[in-house]
Computed example of a mutant assay.
Amino acid sequence: MGRCESERKQIQRGQSSGMESNAEVDFTISAEDMETLKNFKKIESYGASSGFPVYGGKM
């Protein structure tokens, strides 16, 4: 059974999914940390994983 199917069955049984618990996380990114993230050097190559859209910049 795939992960999505498993999560759907958990929700049907009234069990919390991982996505639901992730949404409950409460945090704040400081202005200083946000500037660091904005100015983070772009990764030029992910090597053999570059073909995956999430790494290849195609998403």
Score class of each variant (00 low, 15 high):
residue 41 K to L: 09
residue 44 E to D: 12
residue 25 V to G: 06
residue 1 M to L: 09
residue 32 E to S: 08
residue 15 Q to F: 13
residue 2 G to K: 11
residue 33 D to C: 01
residue 54 V to Y: 03
residue 17 S to H: 01
residue 33 D to T: 05
residue 44 E to P: 02
residue 51 G to L: 02
residue 8 R to Q: 07
residue 2 G to Y: 02
residue 12 Q to S: 15
residue 54 V to K: 04
residue 13 R to V: 00
residue 18 G to S: 10
residue 38 K to R: 15
residue 29 I to V: 15
residue 12 Q to A: 15
residue 20 E to Q: 09
residue 58 K to H: 04
residue 24 E to A: 13
residue 34 M to A: 14
residue 15 Q to N: 14
residue 7 E to I: 03
residue 53 P to Y: 05
residue 36 T to G: 01
residue 24 E to V: 02
residue 9 K to T: 12
residue 44 E to N: 10
residue 33 D to L: 06
residue 22 N to I: 03
residue 29 I to A: 10
residue 6 S to K: 11
residue 59 M to H: 03
residue 11 I to T: 10
residue 35 E to F: 05
residue 58 K to T: 09
residue 51 G to A: 07
residue 4 C to Q: 12
residue 1 M to G: 15
residue 52 F to R: 02
residue 31 A to C: 03
residue 10 Q to A: 08
residue 46 Y to P: 01
residue 21 S to F: 03
residue 42 K to E: 10
residue 24 E to F: 02
residue 6 S to G: 04
residue 28 T to A: 12
residue 14 G to K: 10
residue 24 E to I: 01
residue 3 R to T: 14
residue 8 R to H: 01
residue 38 K to Q: 14
residue 34 M to I: 05
residue 13 R to P: 00
residue 9 K to I: 13
residue 25 V to H: 10
residue 7 E to M: 13
residue 27 F to W: 14
residue 27 F to S: 15
residue 30 S to Y: 01
residue 59 M to V: 06
residue 49 S to H: 09
residue 38 K to H: 11
residue 2 G to P: 07
residue 14 G to H: 10
residue 10 Q to T: 04
residue 21 S to A: 07
residue 31 A to Y: 00
residue 23 A to R: 02
residue 22 N to H: 05
residue 44 E to I: 02
residue 40 F to H: 10
residue 54 V to W: 05
residue 53 P to M: 08
residue 55 Y to M: 12
residue 31 A to V: 06
residue 1 M to C: 11
residue 7 E to F: 11
residue 51 G to D: 00
residue 45 S to L: 02
residue 43 I to D: 15
residue 51 G to K: 11
residue 42 K to P: 08
residue 18 G to A: 09
residue 41 K to E: 15
residue 44 E to H: 06
